[in-house]
Computed example of a mutant assay.
Amino acid sequence: MRRNTVVLAALGGAVALALSACGGSSGTPEAKGATGATKPAGTPPSSPAAPAKEPILLAFGGDVHFEGMLRSRLASPSTALGPIARTLRAADYSMVNLETAITTGGTQAPGKEYAFKAPPSALAALKAAGVDVTSMANNHGMDFMQSGLRDSLKAIKKTGFPTVGIGRNADEAYKAHRVTVKGNKLAIVGATQVLDDHLIQPWTATDAQGGLASAKNEARMVQAVRDAAKGSDVVIVHLHWGAELEPCATAVQRRLAQRLKEAGADVIVGGHAHIPQGGGYMGDAYVHYGLGNFVFYSANGQTANSGVLLLRVQDGKVTADKWKPARISGGLPHLLKGAAGAAELKRWKGLRSCTGGLTAAPS
């Protein structure tokens, strides 16, 4: 269980009051959200009762890789993500987008100006920073083609690190990762709508080919969300989508978000634009169109604008949200404080005007 008292101080106001019901105690990232009790000696065995559902706090960061000056940070995975790890650990469940292949070899994809790869220690770095699940469904997840895919899947299996949007076939790639956090049954799905035209076929997972879950196949994506909704309290969908450096959600993003919401998604987050896009409520679901860069060696200017999205979930619905603005320096995000933080938060809230009707509160 994570220390929600850290979050109470961060959110402030009404959101902080709402979160006070969460409680919390000290613990390691691996122990967050865990519950348990010791029975007195001699107690007869019985069917375990379903744990009560407590309010939980979700945290989301944007695109992560370990290129350039960031590669050396993997020499010490326990501190690789720097101070932002405190914010990720303070939540009950955290997620980022891992925008790189996990391989030290492989054959680079043809025709790509930028190709990213990292050793398996990248997964250890995410875990140490308090990240609980990642998506590799993006336009860099298979930068080193099928050989790189095999290495990535091997690393995922060996480490046991929860990773969505990638698999040995379509069933695996579209399959939701399921986990129970403080009595809340979560299902997380990942997919990409961004693929180079000449790589759509070789990168897309099919019945006979390993690869990535593609949101270009909207019917399959909708079915994946419907499947995820069965037996779960909260469905989280992570999408790689949108237009680079475009602050406004595209018509394609807005249409897909609506379809996935109708299919059962409660939280829809994503990225690709390299800058933060707007977020808000679509009815009773929360949509954040673009989380921006997060751990990214080349971030500068507007692409260095970043942040952490915090969502409070209770009884299967998002009841409060908070965008914590950050600025990337040296490849790592640092939370903004004081006047700088207030100004960037105000600017980010203004982006809601071009999200196609997202609101500041659920309805």
Rank of each mutant, 00 (worst) to 15 (best):
P162Q: 12
T163N: 09
I166F: 10
G167I: 02
N169L: 12
A173T: 14
A176C: 09
H177A: 11
H177E: 11
H177K: 12
V179G: 00
G183D: 11
G183C: 11
N184D: 07
K185M: 10
A191I: 02
T192P: 11
V194Q: 09
L195F: 11
D197A: 15
H198P: 09
L199P: 09
I200E: 15
Q201K: 15
T204H: 08
D207C: 02
D207G: 15
A208W: 13
Q209K: 15
L212M: 09
A213T: 02
E218S: 14
A219D: 14
R226Q: 15
D227E: 15
A228T: 07
A228K: 03
A229E: 08
A229W: 02
G231Q: 08
G231I: 09
S232M: 10
S232E: 06
D233Q: 05
V234R: 02
V234P: 07
V235R: 01
L239S: 06
L239E: 03
L239P: 02
H240L: 04
G242E: 01
G242W: 03
A243N: 13
A243D: 13
L245M: 11
T250K: 02
Q253E: 14
A257D: 01
A257I: 07
Q258C: 00
Q258T: 14
R259I: 00
L260R: 05
L260V: 07
A265D: 01
V269G: 07
H272S: 12
H274K: 08
H274A: 06
H274P: 04
I275M: 02
I275V: 13
G280S: 04
G280P: 04
G280I: 03
G280F: 03
G283P: 07
D284E: 13
A285I: 03
Y286T: 09
Y289F: 15
N293A: 11
